[in-house]
Design a protein around this nucleic acid. Structure first.
Length: 569
RNA sequence: UGGGGCGUCGUCAAGCGGAAAGACACAGGGUUUUGGACCCUGCAUUCGGAGGUUCGAAUCCUCCCGCCCCAGCCA
């Protein structure tokens, strides 16, 4: 294997690394680098989150710093305990460790309320009795300034009283809010007296019934980072114009001031990446769940057979910048192939079986061949025994009655090599009388070619995989394709909505595939290369009684190009 | 004449005044008991456009054009 192709390669320079390097040189934060990954537990993590995770944990690791895992659980009506567990599993699976630094925004609710009181005392926050509709109306528009609320100039004493009573549960949901008193004429809408607390009589998954007011993200997030002494608060682009607000809160409170840095979120071709949309796919049962192998979720990719290493490699390769972009799915596929090529043992499996009878092979005879798991490096994992007998299955696509141009697999009178076994030659084609469909092929084998070499030195153009009919294990194989038929479903042509671009062929279930007997020992999560076909992973639902494999990704196939060229002529 | 960002190969992306890295994709060729892997080769005289500064600009200045985000008591 070539060294340069190995997954560990030099880090790609990016602007965030530059900023940190600069900060370190200037002695900022006493040389500390402390980041965090702050998901809201309202859905499963996807590959876009993986980018953020790799960035935050990666930067901390690179600069000898720390990275926290913090659940941003400020909205109890959208968040669930189940998501918290799934998120932790995904981060761990990717190979990152938050050690003892697992935090929750809800742990800081008391502190946040104290800070709010400080702002009220300083005349920087007020309780507003207007309805949400009125508040929206008073906020103004993008081009016109807003108007000040009727309640903006209440006394500190009244604000204190009202806020305490909000907190005590005296008011109904939505009847009042606490707002920061900033500038209703600001060009930045975030500065037009943003809401800090809403009244929500909802049970929180961690604090239970303790609170009936909950902080909003804009008020809470900067505080969470400050409380944890985060030095570099890395987030996505859409929060860029919230930064002045976070800065304002931190300055008013005069507390530790993390530096926020924004980067462009990941978009991938042929899929969607927003949690809202992924949730919709799950709810409408377009997919079988968050971990459906077609989903760009971490759990979906895991079930599909992607490895943590391949995802981390991908995240390193795509780089980090500020411009909106859509990364080609082919790059992600390249990353798994690269990893699995080096790490997946080779086995044989026939997806679309075609029976072959070797007429001159003794009826009851069975031979066993040693087939290395890593043909390019035989000692690596040793080999397994592959039984061979008179009747075998080969791939339907490996036989053509009228071979097309440059086709060099089996065809009438043609000879090919059965991998690890013998040369066989096709002598007869058996067809169904009614349909004309090819049902069986008759061949002869050359006993002199055992192992795959002919003593007379004659060459054969094709080598095909096979499996002994009487020894084969039946298996179900799931083939996957892009979830969407267009590369950018969010911005596809026409007025149709994104769901209309779903790929109807994203899942194909093959029920009677035949795989070699060594796979009886395959366990869920195991990766294999089915030679000449692709990389496959044992599904969690697979069992000894019913083997189920997911195709992670096919092998690159230069034959399809030739085929297309042939058809073009 | 609201505010905030961004525009370098088909797709990502380095570059930070000394003269276009790399990866994926694509196209050729070699090699091969996986039409896989591996190995070569090719692939932006040009950096959204126009001016300007400079011996010298993708990098600095000016203007223009295009794209993205913001009017949740979501995050």
């Amino acid at each position: 294997m070539n060294e340069s192709k190995k997954i560990t390669h030099d880090k790609v320079p990016n602007f965030i690394r530059s900023i940190i390097l600069e900060d370190l040189e200037m002695g900022k934060n006493e040389g500390r680098v402390h980041t965090r990954f702050p998901p809201e537990p309202n859905g499963y993590l996807h590959i876009g989150h993986a980018k953020a995770i790799c960035l935050n944990f990666g930067l901390a690791e690179e600069f000898g710093g720390l990275c926290n895992l913090r659940f941003d659980d400020t909205n109890p009506i959208k968040e669930e305990e189940a998501y918290i567990r799934a998120i932790q599993e995904d981060v761990k699976w990717l190979g990152f460790d938050w050690e003892d630094r697992l935090y929750y925004a809800s742990d800081y609710f008391d502190q946040m309320a104290d800070y709010a009181v400080q702002l009220i005392r300083a005349g920087k926050a007020y309780v507003d009795d207007m309805s949400s509709d009125e508040i929206r109306e008073y906020r103004g528009t993008l081009k016109e300034p807003g108007k000040e609320s009727l309640y903006r100039n209440r006394s500190v004493k009244e604000n204190m009283d009202l806020f305490e009573r909000m907190r005590a549960g005296e008011f109904r949901d939505g009847s009042r809010v606490l707002r920061a008193k900033i500038d209703m004429a600001s060009g930045n809408l975030n500065m037009r007296d943003p809401v800090m607390y809403r009244i929500l009589h909802a049970k929180h998954h961690r604090t239970g019934e303790k609170w009936c007011i909950y902080p909003l993200y804009d008020w809470a997030h900067g505080l969470e980072d400050s409380i944890e002494s985060i030095t570099h608060s890395i987030c996505t682009l859409e929060f860029e114009d919230h930064r002045p607000l976070y800065d304002w809160f931190l300055d008013q409170l005069n507390i530790f001031h993390p530096q926020q840095i924004e980067f462009a979120r990941l978009n991938l071709s042929f899929t969607v990446m927003s949690k809202r949309r992924l949730l919709e796919l799950v709810r409408k049962k377009v997919v079988r769940g968050w971990d459906d192998p077609r989903m760009p979720t971490i759990s979906g990719l895991r079930r599909r057979g992607y490895t943590p290493q391949s995802i981390r490699d991908f995240c390193e390769r795509i780089g980090v910048a500020k411009r909106d972009s859509v990364v080609d799915m082919a790059l992600l596929e390249h990353c798994v192939r690269n990893d699995l090529n080096q790490n997946a043992p080779r086995v044989m499996g026939v997806l679309h079986p075609l029976r072959v009878v070797i007429k001159n092979y003794p009826e009851e005879q069975v031979e066993e061949f040693d087939a290395p798991y890593f043909p390019d490096d035989p000692p690596r994992m040793g080999s397994r025994k592959v039984p061979f007998s008179r009747e075998i299955y080969i791939e339907q696509a490996d036989f053509q009655e009228n071979p097309s141009k440059k086709y060099f697999r089996l065809a009438p009178s043609r000879e090919v090599r059965l991998r690890w076994a013998y040369y066989v030659k096709c002598i007869h084609v058996v067809k169904d009388d009614k349909t004309g469909e090819i049902v069986e092929i008759h061949c002869t084998y050359d006993p002199e070619t055992k192992g795959g070499w002919a003593p007379d030195g004659r060459k054969v153009k094709g080598t095909i995989h096979w499996v002994s009919a009487s020894h084969a294990l039946e298996a179900e194989v799931h083939l996957y394709d892009h979830l969407f038929a267009v590369s950018d479903p969010d911005n596809a042509e026409g007025e149709t909505d994104w769901m209309s671009h779903l790929n109807p062929h994203s899942l194909e279930i093959l029920k009677s595939c035949m795989v070699e007997p060594s796979l009886a020992r395959a366990e869920p999560g195991n990766h294999y290369q089915f030679e000449r076909q692709g990389y496959f992973c044992v599904d969690p639902d697979s069992s000894a009684e019913k083997l189920v494999f997911n195709r992670t990704v096919s092998l690159r196939d230069s034959w399809v190009k030739i085929e297309k060229a042939n058809q073009g002529k």
